[in-house]
Design a binder for these strands. Structure first.
Ligand SMILES: [Mn+2]
Ligand SMILES: [Mn+2]
Ligand SMILES: [Mn+2]
Ligand SMILES: [Mn+2]
Lengths: 220, 220
DNA sequence: AGATTGTTTTTGACTCCTCAAAATGTTGCT
DNA sequence: AGCAACATTTTGAGGAGTCAAAAACAATCT
């Protein structure tokens, strides 16, 4: 059985290769894992020896089919646990990521299935992140962000792609939770600011950097 | 923060000193932890250095106040998680011990409190084991067992003191779950057998060894 | 008291994961 | 082509937890 360290490496390789399926660099992986680059190299060589990743020395790393299966199972656990903590235990959506980071390695597949049923087989977690299904199918739809979408058309927030508690609290304070209706009133790239208009009247202003982490779809 | 290995050592010292509060022997601790005796000695010296236990070389080990607080918190997590898995997720009572063995180290105090509230602040887990309260108070009442109680008086099963899945399934098959009404019809020490009589008619026969693990109180 | 038995401790070695710092390779720039 | 900047790998070391086997000790029996 893979240790929780190995599970974390695999999960981060998966997350870092979302979208483009090219190689993940050692530097990016080391940063994500919060270790020095040499440690990442050592571990990648070790898990490559177990057939979980393919290592192109000096260029990067990618998951094998076996590694991907494992990584998707960990990600499914993570996101279902987050959903449970918010929907059933009513925890703050800004704090569940840290919890799930631990629990994802402790929970069995049987408990996972029962949680999934209890929650009604959800397809996204509280942050709008898609939950891989039992078969390991991950719905990786590409969305526009508040930094790139067209101005003045009705939108709906579908996902927030950052897990830090501070950022999530900021998002909540400005009423930009997944599901919120919104439109972009103005965008000033030189000033780095995006002016929003909520259905209901509020007009929050966020930085372009923050706007790029809020994914939207055309909405009622 | 204590590692999960340390948490397990502390929990087992607590469990092995239930009742009498004298020293726990290295041999008993090593067996419980499923390590060789030398490993237990090494670990006990290490956690003694952190002020979690007091080590009487050559005689045994006992918890300090600090170690006891930690151990009780782990035990509380273990038993509340078991209760959650059975009462909410409807898992088999014979399988939840293994699950809780992992989850007890991954769950935060905040999730613990919310689980406790969701479950309605239970005082015992599915096996009848008492759940320490938030203040670390553990109700260690001493009960009679089916191997020692008086014959032919009405009894109620209150606790089963063994966690192996096989034994718990055996108990369930014979309708001896906590709460079951029962009386001892006959006890033959030489043959090592105990004949029971259930309210409802069934008359299961169990070994004296098994009977000693089923705790009862005088009951309707 | 002396010998035997069983328990505990010590010692040396190993796995897993990590870091610091030096060595090496790659890329882009002049 | 030569050099600088940056990323990656290698090397040596250490902490946590474990085992096997030898040494030390305690308890018990003659
Ligand atoms: Mn998360
Ligand atoms: Mn999430
Ligand atoms: Mn248990
Ligand atoms: Mn229990």
């Amino acid at each position: 059985m893979a240790t929780s360290t190995v599970e974390n490496y695999l999960k981060h390789v998966l997350l870092l290769s979302e979208g483009g399926d090219d190689l993940v660099s050692m530097g990016a992986l080391a940063t994500a894992m919060e270790v020095v680059p040499g440690t990442a190299t050592t571990m990648v060589k070790a898990i490559a020896g177990e057939g979980l990743v393919e290592h192109q020395p000096r260029y990067g790393v990618k998951l094998t089919a076996k590694g991907r299966r494992l990584a998707l199972n960990v990600l499914r656990k993570h996101r279902l646990i987050e959903t449970f903590l918010v929907n059933v235990l009513k925890m703050d959506w800004s704090k569940v990521h840290e919890e799930a980071e631990q629990l994802e390695h402790a929970i069995s597949d049987e408990v996972l299935d029962r949680l999934d049923a209890l929650l009604g087989h959800p397809t996204t977690d509280p942050h709008g992140d898609p939950i891989p299904n039992r078969q390991g199918r991950l719905n990786s739809q590409v969305y526009a962000t508040l930094a790139t979408c067209a101005l003045d058309i009705p939108l709906r927030v579908v996902r927030v792609t950052e897990q830090s508690a501070e950022f999530l609290q900021f998002v909540e304070q400005n009423g930009l939770l997944p599901g919120a209706g919104i439109r972009v009133a103005d965008r000033n790239l030189t000033a780095g600011l995006v002016k929003l208009k909520k259905t209901g009247g509020r007009t929050p202003i966020v930085s372009v950097a923050a706007a790029g982490k809020i994914l939207v779809e055309p909405g009622k």
